[in-house]
Nucleic acid binder design. Structure first.
Lengths: 146, 146
DNA sequence: ATCGATATTGAGAATCATTATAATCACTTT
DNA sequence: AAAGTGATTATAATGATTCTCAATATCGAT
């Protein structure tokens, strides 16, 4: 299987940090790379469980998160979903189905994005809180549940 | 203890639905009413556990959520936090500490709020997703962890 | 290519938050 | 007072996630 551009970036990034891109980890980032939204350990297990055991998936997700390659997303009860980090995916937001919990990526108009950033900035000055990032979740019913 | 205005609203709402506002439930909504952000079952247990057992807290939270008095908030791993529903609290957003997980309420400028609503609207037309609400989480370090 | 040090894996047990079950209690209604 | 209805509580069960540890794979030095 050919290495995608995304994969090369990740490979380099991990190499610089002396973290190995093993076949299990590669399978995971590859799977996240083609997903159109964050995926949970069991989502991943459903698609790559024939090659990577669940315990390894959990461990690899922790390693990749620690390394800054993926980021967690918490929007429904009980499960943590992961997606490739912002520097790999670009900044975006999420549609969250309140019925089935599925999460889908979405982009919003750049002028709004700019305003959101301005807000986040101003918050940092007003209150004793050091903002780092922001996340907009749009909650509703996905096409399946609608 | 005197009944607050908030409590009267909740009492009436529950009465209309034939759901009793028992002393445990009252203690919970009272506690959520004075909190400056969503609280988890164990947060609540820490503050009112001398009067309401943990299992009751969980069950009451489920009843109150079902009744539309409180809403869940998912922003950190593993725990669900609850807050009084929007019709009681007003619309607002959250500061989420990426270090300790504490969540604090925040209000944003109404012109931005209006724009967010416009975005949510337009999403509904563009993609096959029926938006219902939106949530903006500002992630960073709280004053404790900073 | 081989060796030894170190990192990773795989399988299962253990843990944590949460939910379901079942027995008991309180309050109404008969 | 007996019977119902809903609420409470202690406890068992569940599901997601983390931990443990022996087996395996990888890297750098030889």
């Amino acid at each position: 299987m050919p290495e995608t551009n995304l994969e090369k970036q990740i490979a380099g990034w991990l190499q610089e940090r002396d973290i190995r891109l093993t076949s299990g980890r590669r399978t995971i980032v590859r799977s996240l790379g083609v997903a159109d939204g964050p995926r949970s350990a069991s989502d991943l297990y459903a698609s790559i469980g024939d090659t990577v055991p669940l315990s390894s998936i959990y461990r690899s997700l922790a390693v990749l998160e620690e390394a800054g390659v993926i980021s967690p997303h918490y929007s429904t009860k009980g499960v943590t979903r992961y997606e490739l980090a912002e520097w790999l995916m670009g900044h975006h937001h999420h549609l969250v189905c309140v019925e089935c919990g599925q999460v889908e990526d979405i982009e919003i108009a750049s002028e709004i994005e700019t305003q959101l950033e301005a807000i986040v900035e101003s918050i940092g000055r007003e209150v004793s809180f050091a903002p780092r990032d922001h996340a907009l979740n749009i909650e509703g019913l996905c096409s399946e549940c609608k």
